[in-house]
Measured scan of single mutants.
Amino acid sequence: HESKLSILMDMFPAISKSKLQVHLLENNNDLDLTIGLLL
């Protein structure tokens, strides 16, 4: 999960990174759901 998140972070600009982190917190680190929201 950690490395997947790092790769994902590299793919998005800074603003999207903050949104990603907020979504991860709100969704209890449900990375798949977060990716779904961003794609």
Rank of each mutant, 00 (worst) to 15 (best):
E2T: 15
L5E: 02
G36N: 10
M11R: 14
Q21A: 07
I15F: 15
L5K: 01
L5H: 00
Q21E: 11
L25A: 14
S16H: 15
L38T: 02
S3G: 07
L37C: 14
I15L: 09
H1D: 14
S3C: 07
H1P: 14
D32M: 05
E26M: 06
L24T: 03
K4T: 11
S18C: 14
E2L: 14
L25W: 10
K17H: 09
L33G: 13
L24A: 01
L5C: 05
D32E: 10
L33T: 12
D32H: 09
N28E: 12
I35N: 03
V22P: 03
M11W: 04
L37S: 13
L24M: 05
S3T: 04
N28G: 13
L8P: 00
H1M: 15
L5G: 01
S6L: 09
D32Y: 02
L25S: 11
G36K: 14
F12W: 03
L8V: 03
I15H: 12
L25D: 06
I35S: 07
N29W: 13
K19E: 10
S6R: 11
L33A: 13
M11L: 06
I35Y: 06
L33P: 12
N27R: 06
L5D: 00
S16P: 13
L33F: 05
D32T: 06
N28Y: 03
N28Q: 10
L5P: 02
K17I: 04
N28S: 13
V22T: 12
M11P: 02
K17R: 10
L5Q: 01
E2I: 15
I35D: 01
F12P: 03
E26G: 08
S6H: 04
L20E: 02
L20A: 06
L33C: 12
D10H: 07
N29M: 12
I35P: 01
I35T: 10
H1S: 15
S16R: 07
L33Q: 10
N27Q: 08
L24K: 02
S16D: 11
L37N: 12
V22G: 10
L39I: 06
S18F: 13
E26A: 13
G36Y: 03
E26N: 15
M11D: 02
I35L: 07
S16W: 02
L39W: 10
K4R: 11
S3P: 03
T34V: 12
S18G: 09
T34Q: 01
L25M: 13
D10W: 02
L31R: 01
I7P: 02
S16C: 08
L31H: 02
N27V: 04
I15V: 08
E26D: 07
A14T: 07
K4L: 08
S16G: 06
L37H: 11
L24E: 01
L31S: 01
V22R: 13
V22K: 13
M9S: 12
L25C: 12
D30W: 01
L20Q: 02
G36D: 13
